[in-house]
Design a protein around this nucleic acid. Structure first.
Lengths: 342, 342
DNA sequence: AGCATCGCTCAAAGCGCTTTGAGAGGAGCC
DNA sequence: GGCTCCTCTCAAAGCGCTTTGAGCGATGCT
């Protein structure tokens, strides 16, 4: 087994106190002593036992993410990318990441367990629903948490979200300016805040321009290719088909593209497409045919920042911005054009 | 804070020993006492502190997965699905899952840290490379580990793999029987064992039939749509284009489908496609157009079994099968047909 | 010189659990 | 009754760390 503190201090002829303090950067220990301790520690490959430290300090040095085993269909590739972001900062600060598997029904209980057992110091809540009971619960518990998405109004839970509403406002505004009127929205599941916000942004643009949105062209569901395909088929087959599609993700856009192609229509000649791009490396908007116009925001960077915000709370640091909202860029590529004249 | 053992036993008028034993199912405690203890524990919502238990027993009650922050491009959606499987069994046994973020260079060190610090009781190694140093290392350490994929010969590390070689043997055999001769393989990165095995299986089928494979049609790379598309474009543009494609994943097949469509060819009339299907719920082979012929194996089920194997090692259970290899089914759907006559 | 002050170090007391070794009481046997 | 043998329970000793409160020279001030 690895060396423990007792042995190390014995080797050094110092007390455990001094060694521990030297290693943890307490000011009470002399610089010369500290150096000597540090050197010996790395020479012997000493690593304090996390369990012991945890027990003694009550801090876990870990971030918790509850992993919804069944619901993940919605998020699959996005989740990994987000996780990668969280990982990056967590790793840099020597924090572990604990994934707690759970089913929807027991999800709240799982959070409670995580919180109370002291296995983690802070919790990250991703893709919150509207009035998400998880957030309400965590808020009530007063436990360090960061929501990736929009947290309810009154709750003082730290959150980071991208400006979904602004993004879809911009995107829709752009389509309207190009002359599109019949615009289809293939949204994510509207129980989630991000989807609600996107819908709102889309409507904002119509209101701003004084145009009537065609609500029959709005749909919501899991952000998969399959659903994009299905929604687009349905929209294109209806009377008064759309001339443009707004898609919740690149995956959805892929499905839409396919449906459009099958209908013998062309992008962007007949149909314009704008998708929201979370920057999944496996699905790059600029590599699609045609390269997609997108509203872009790195979900990975968001993950990294969310982790930072969580760590800040753990260390008692005060965030000057408890609710960050990141702006989203509209990147115009080749999937948008004025609607066909007829 | 939650109640601790001391308080609970005080309430019950029993010693900590007895309460602890009652809760952990030791035989020394009377049935009546046990019931009384259990009842009180759940009534007070008592949960033993993981940290304390960890320290006392030296067992972490957690499984470790090292999460390669950069390499994940290859695996994105697959990884989540696998993780979901691991989660299921881990959760059922009250094991936590620790994700340790790492970059390729420090990956081995990360494993070492995980192993030595006692943060986890077992480690899961996914998508091993040929002669993967991680496995060699873990094998040398004698630490409980399960490899998802093929573990090197001599190393006695428990592993679970699907029969990649057999799968591609079957698939290729099927294509050969249909009359295809120029068969393209769009493989995963051939540093990984699964990809090597698939290539081998493909060659096996050619050898078995006494045919020459067209190695110029074989390619390898990340299993993304993009790469599938690129590989297929290249293959179709060359002289002596293929009449069939073998794809490493559904994603790859999607890219191939697109390239085929762009070349004005039809599936399966002009081109047959078989893909390996890991059963990602977001990309269902039977929902594609046309529904894809696949070699199918649930990566999620594999994750669940891998976790079981890891737990077994932790509890000292002996696995009668330290190297499981799961058979893979060939599911014939609508993307395969005899090659066009000309 | 005498006092307070500072810098450095230490012994010891937890943190909340498991586990060892032992004891108390009852049953079973001669 | 006296003995052993179970059954059930307990006190106490860790697990490896942090942290409190104290001690002990050396330094600075009057």
């Amino acid at each position: 087994m690895a060396m423990n503190l007792k042995e190390l201090s014995a080797h050094l002829g110092l007390s455990q106190t001094t060694v521990s303090r030297a290693l943890n950067g307490y000011p009470e220990v002399g610089e010369a002593t500290r150096l000597r301790v540090m050197e010996a520690a790395s020479r012997f490959g000493y690593r304090p036992s996390p369990a012991a430290r945890r027990l003694a300090t009550g801090t876990a040095h870990a971030l918790g993410i509850v992993f919804p085993v069944e619901r993940n269909v919605l998020l699959d590739p996005l989740f990994v990318e987000f996780l990668a972001g969280v990982s990056e900062t967590a790793g840099r600060n020597n924090f572990d990441i604990l994934i707690s598997p759970t089913t929807s029904e027991t999800e709240i209980a799982t959070y409670g367990r995580l919180v109370r057992s002291g296995t983690v110091d802070a919790v990250i809540i991703s893709s919150p629903a509207v009035d998400d009971p998880r957030i309400v619960r965590i808020g009530a518990l007063g436990f360090p948490a960061v929501v990736h998405g929009r947290a309810g109004e009154g709750l003082d839970v730290v959150s980071l979200d991208i400006d979904n509403r602004g993004a879809f406002l911009q995107a829709t505004r752009f389509l309207l300016q190009l002359g599109h009127r019949r615009i289809a929205l293939v949204n994510g599941d509207e129980r989630f805040t991000f989807a609600v916000d996107r819908r709102a942004g889309t409507l904002d643009a119509f209101a701003e321009a004084g145009n009537q949105p065609s609500l029959d062209l709005f749909s919501a569901g899991p952000m998969t290719m399959e659903n994009g395909y299905r929604a687009a088929r349905a929209a294109l087959a209806g009377e008064g088909p759309p001339t443009a599609f707004l898609c919740g993700s690149i995956l959805v856009a892929l499905g839409v593209l396919k449906a459009v192609a099958e209908s013998g229509l062309e992008v962007p000649g007949d149909i314009s497409i704008i998708a929201h791009d979370d920057e999944m490396p496996a699905f790059r908007a600029d590599q699609m045919m045609p390269p997609l116009t997108t509203t872009r925001s790195s979900i990975r960077a968001a993950g990294a920042r969310v982790a930072e915000m969580a760590l800040a709370q753990v260390t008692g640091e005060v965030l000057d911005q408890p609710h960050e909202v990141w702006p989203v860029e509209l990147i115009v590529r080749a999937s948008t054009a004025p609607p066909p004249v007829r």
